Simulated assay, not measured.
Amino acid sequence: MRQVRLTAITAACFTATFVFAQSVPELTGPSPDPMKPVPAEPLEDYVTDDVRQMRAYPEQPPIIPHSIQGYQLSVNANRCMTCHRREHVEGSGAPMISITHYMTREGQMLADVSPRRYFCTQCHVPQADTQALIGNTFTDMSELGAAGAGGE
């Protein structure tokens, strides 16, 4: 009985490995010599018009609508905070970072930006002027004509 179970488990593992190996695309470089160095494609131009973009899906972090080239973002300095910290938004005209950036994981408010929210580019990225890699059919609720609660 024990031998039958081991054989069934072994067969299931082999089948899963075979199916997985079949679905993974082969990684190859340029033909005919995949080891030959190839020049990199040029980087896309970033959108720098300072126009806020609609989000592509709910809860998406806002994108950065300006260039951040040369911005220092380290443990000791964060150039983003010179405009987006709540104390500086009135003078800079930049949108204030969300109040969630001043909270701990437990929801306790802090006097300064939470260390886990300090490195802005872990969530926020500049927008490049490129074609979408995949299609997106997201439609905002306001575009669907949804009425507010208690509207009847």
Rank of each mutant, 00 (worst) to 15 (best):
I9W: 11
C13D: 05
F14V: 13
F14W: 11
T15W: 08
A16M: 07
A21P: 02
Q22F: 05
S23I: 06
S23C: 02
P25H: 04
L27D: 09
G29A: 07
G29V: 07
S31R: 15
D33M: 03
E41N: 02
Y46V: 10
V47H: 01
V47W: 01
D49Q: 06
R52E: 15
E59Q: 12
Q60P: 04
P61L: 00
I64H: 02
H66Q: 06
Q69S: 09
G70F: 01
Q72N: 13
V75M: 05
R79Q: 14
R79M: 06
M81C: 00
T82G: 02
H84P: 08
R85F: 06
E87M: 05
H88M: 09
V89P: 04
P95N: 06
P95Q: 09
S98G: 12
S98Y: 05
T100Q: 15
H101T: 12
M103H: 08
T104L: 06
D112A: 05
D112L: 03
C120G: 04
Q122V: 14
V125M: 13
Q127C: 01
D129G: 00
T130E: 15
T139Q: 13
D140M: 11
D140G: 03
M141P: 14
L144Y: 02
L144K: 14
L144G: 00
G150V: 02
